[in-house]
Design a protein around this nucleic acid. Structure first.
Lengths: 141, 141
DNA sequence: TTAGATGCAAATAGTTTGCATTTGT
DNA sequence: ACAAATGCAAACTATTTGCATCTAA
């Protein structure tokens, strides 16, 4: 069972958590889908890969990953289940088309300065952020 | 039943939706709590005020308000139910303490320039945004 | 070897739906 | 008057829990 580990898997192990089949499979599914999935989607994909893995373990993995800030639950469409987004380096931002629900990623958010400013003004210690813009994408406007 | 209407209630009526007791109560609850509530909290508060109002109507109201962009479901703690945040004037930002879940509002977000830039680069039409910072508040750090 | 994780199945939330009845306009 | 909205209760979906068993380190 010794393939090379993804950086996130290494992080898991380094934090002292066991690299179990369930966890690695969930992580793998998330990574191969770019980290934009509802729990239901994750459940389905995991089931396709290895139907021995139980639902509860998938939820437990999602929970663990959230606590470790590997992913973060968020709302993308107006549905009722969270969409888990991967947090590459602790922050995440995207544009959501309010018409077709398409998600458009973008890179620079230029929030570093604001972050520093807020930390000083409000005496807080910030570790990450989520920035969502809403509007109409090129196809819908 | 003629009290003065909040701007949001007026907006409801102007859009052609009926100002029913259920909707006004849900709106009222949201407004008097600063618009940071889970569905469960809203259900509870509404029930305290008027136990005649059914759960379904509360969900229907939350749904309607979301479609009208009066509120927006989002994830604040790692729990499983969405937290509805009010969208005053189309944008909203806050800091969430990952330890005690306290929500700290702040005003300026300086995102106007980024917004314009993205609109041009990606050919989108943006109407609002949500910015959440995560970290430790002054009491918890 | 053994604490930590798992899978299962049953229990709990949380949310939606169909429908007869009520209500705002 | 009447389309729109409601309350109810039942159906559904999503998530969590207890516990005996298994497994990575």
């Amino acid at each position: 069972m010794s393939e090379e580990l993804s950086p996130r898997a290494q992080r898991l192990r380094d934090t002292g958590y066991k690299l179990t089949n369930a966890r690695l499979t969930v992580l793998n599914v998330l990574e191969s889908h770019g980290g934009h999935m509802t729990s239901t989607q994750v459940l389905d994909e995991v089931d396709k890969i290895d139907s021995e893995i139980g639902r509860a373990s998938v939820f437990r993995a999602l929970d663990l990953f959230t606590r470790l800030s590997i992913i973060r639950p968020t709302y993308i469409d107006s549905s009722t289940t969270p969409t888990y987004v991967m947090l590459p380096g602790g922050h995440h931002h995207h544009i959501i088309c309010t018409n077709c629900n398409r998600v458009i990623e973008f890179e620079d958010c230029h929030l570093g300065q604001l972050e520093t400013e807020l930390e000083r003004q409000l005496n807080v210690r910030l570790t990450g952020h989520l920035l969502e813009f809403y509007g109409l994408c090129d196809r819908c406007s």
